[in-house]
Design a protein around this nucleic acid. Structure first.
Length: 582
RNA sequence: GCGCCCGUAGCUCAGUAGGAUAGAGCACGGGAUUCCUAAUCCCGGGGUCACAGGUUCGAAUCCUGUCGGGCGCACCA
């Protein structure tokens, strides 16, 4: 049990005793009681809002209730001080031994210290990246990819059975465009002068090798044939090549999906027809004509009857078309089939990570999931805002037409996956992010990842020195260290930060907010660096004290606990905890 | 016009399920290095939490409106 959970239990049992004594009425909602670290450390080491929450149902003034609770809590052996504070908090100070349990737990549990079983083994599907296979990943994709990956890590760590999934949009007009673009490169590889890439085709150089490979394996036989004959082949080969490249880019970021699900396959195997027939049978579809769109006038708009989904019955703003005037399924229809497919594979919890430019799509997708599952499946959609690429403070304009795309791979190769991942995660996903190529390539202290990694490296450094002095270095060997010797305020602050790790994990997982892990790690690193420097100023506080082996063991135990938490936290973010920095 | 997201220090951002005197980094000013890595640390100035109402013991946080910014708005993906 982690520190703050056990404090909440302590407070609840104190309240129960007050109820038993008749000092409080029965039937109070004790579950809502929380114990948290107070914002201002001067208030104490932990604080509960119990009296504020329960004052009304207990028909007591908050301060009166707080006083009674504080008096009751003072009798607990762990409690050194319990004080009521206006408007009704109860502030607690605990015996150091209470907090030191967390250090012991970290040593004992290692990477499992902080793990909480929120998921109880239930399955969750996290779909992220899912970039169209028409080109390499760019920096904007990188953000959602890193976010989704860290979120998946976090859910797996908290007891969920996670499947990481990539939806491949390998059907539709864009793929035909891709195939035509590759055909042009194919002709080029056969020696033809193709001139400038025509409007409407993909100009990127990355298609050159795809065309060359086709020229080598196929020869010139498709050069002058009608499009209908070569298009499927070229589309398939192009998508394969792009996907291979995307997987490679993902691997460079440390991202590995469990499943790549193909849209084309859903269409070709009849899964879309089947899914929509399922919707039809539930009475969710009808044929009708949508009103003209409200915004900027659409030039070629004309009222046509279409097959529609009753999205408005499930919270969307308008009903949504499922079939195009050509008779083909819309993207949305295939997406419904895909999510139905997920649900049937056993996922009643699904999380999609999308770019903010798909924000207009959220309601209809959630409406569809609600509709086909009769409300039994949940779809959470996390939108990642855009990344503003800057070059030395100046906005870098990316133009697909000019072929001037800053690829994810370029940036990752330049700054490293650790820096990229950490930078993407030190911000809430729903706020835009400035990513300055100059700033992050400088690998200066502007990169918070170094700050955290440096803390880890420094701890490893201490242990290298400890090994030279014949001191134990493993967590197991430090389990019996006399932790009670830790007494300096800077040491105890670090101990309490270690104790706060499990609740940080829980909050981050429950809110789907991996950035909380990143911020916590920076705080933990800051407390460690501060202690380190105090040791420079006051030799008594150095970690390795030659003449006092028990004290040294206690400090090494604390350092190992901190290191464990740093390594675990960095691991959740997908960042490598380094042994040393140079 | 409608929908979603955002607005917190000069800049970039946190703010833990409504809690106490709103925090950190950068930048700026001052200081610390014979000693476990100074890529670090310590001290300081900096704020009408866009604005106006509302809900209540209490609001940066929840609700309504206004202003400002971003994204999106049949038959593309």
């Amino acid at each position: 049990m982690n520190a703050f959970d056990s404090l909440a239990d302590l407070v609840r049992s104190a309240l129960e005793r007050l109820i038993a004594d008749g000092a409080l009425p029965a039937g109070l909602p004790l579950d809502s009681v929380q114990v948290e670290p107070p914002r201002d450390p001067a208030h104490g080491e932990a604080a509960t809002n119990a009296a504020l929450l329960l004052a009304k149902p207990a028909r007591l003034a908050p301060m009166e209730l707080a006083e009674r609770l504080a008096a009751q809590l003072r009798s607990a052996p762990e409690v050194v001080e319990a004080a009521a504070a206006r408007p009704g908090f109860v502030n607690l100070r605990l015996v150091p031994a209470f907090w030191l349990r967390a250090v012991h737990a970290a040593l004992e549990l290692g990477a499992d210290y902080g793990r909480v079983d929120l998921g109880r083994g239930r399955p969750v599907n996290v779909e992220y990246c899912s970039a169209n296979p028409t080109g390499p990943l760019h920096v904007g994709h990188g953000r959602g990819t890193v976010f989704g990956d860290a979120l998946a890590n976090l859910l797996a760590y908290t007891g969920w059975k996670v499947t990481r999934e990539y939806y491949v949009n390998d059907a539709g007009a864009q793929i035909e465009t891709l195939a035509r673009s590759v055909h042009l490169r194919y002709r080029e590889a056969l020696g033809e002068a193709i001139g400038p890439i025509p409007e409407g085709l993909y100009p990127g150089e990355y298609l050159v090798p795809v065309g060359r490979a086709l020229a080598e394996s196929e020869g010139p036989r498709w050069r002058d044939r009608p499009e209908a004959e070569w298009l499927p082949l070229f589309a398939r080969r192009a998508v394969e090549a792009m996907l291979a490249r995307i997987r490679d880019d993902l691997a460079a970021l440390g991202v590995h999906h469990d499943l790549f699900r193909s849209e084309r396959e859903l269409v070709e195997t009849g899964a879309v027809d089947e899914a929509l027939a399922f919707m039809e049978k539930k009475g969710l579809l009808y044929t009708g004509t949508l009103p003209a769109p409200k915004g900027k006038p659409v030039e070629d708009w004309e009222p046509v009857p279409q097959l529609l989904f009753r999205a408005t019955a499930f919270g969307d703003d308008t009903d949504r078309p499922l079939k195009r005037s050509t008779g083909h399924w819309t993207y949305f229809a295939a997406d419904i089939a895909y999510h139905l497919d997920k649900w049937r594979r056993g996922f009643d919890r699904m999380i999609d990570v999308w770019g903010a430019d798909h924000g207009g799509y959220v309601k209809r997708m959630q409406a569809a999931v609600k509709a086909f599952s009769d409300g039994r499946a949940s779809l959470e959609i996390r939108l990642c805002q855009l990344v503003n690429l800057l070059d030395g403070g100046k906005p870098l304009r990316m133009s697909k037409r000019a072929g001037r795309i800053v690829t994810l791979r370029d940036v990752v190769d330049e700054v490293g996956k650790d820096v990229f991942r950490f930078m993407m995660l030190t911000r809430r996903n729903d706020a835009p992010l400035d990513f300055d190529l100059v700033e992050v390539t400088q690998q200066s202290k502007d990169n918070p990842v170094f700050y955290v990694q440096y803390a880890h490296a420094r701890i490893r450094s201490v242990f290298r020195h400890a090994a030279e002095q014949d001191l134990p270095g493993s967590a197991r060997a430090l389990l019996d260290a006399p932790l009670a010797r830790l007494s300096d305020p800077a040491e105890l602050a670090l101990v309490r930060a270690v104790a706060a790790w499990p609740r940080t994990v829980r909050a981050a997982a429950e809110q789907s907010e991996p950035h909380r892990i990143a911020f916590y790690l920076q705080e933990l690193a800051a407390l460690f660096h501060a202690l380190w420097t105090r040791g420079k100023e006051m030799p008594d506080l150095r970690f390795l004290v030659a003449e006092d082996r028990p004290l040294t063991l206690a400090r090494l135990a604390l350092l190992e606990a901190v290191r464990t938490v740093l390594a675990t936290g960095l691991g959740l973010l997908g960042v490598t905890p380094v042994e040393e920095l140079h």
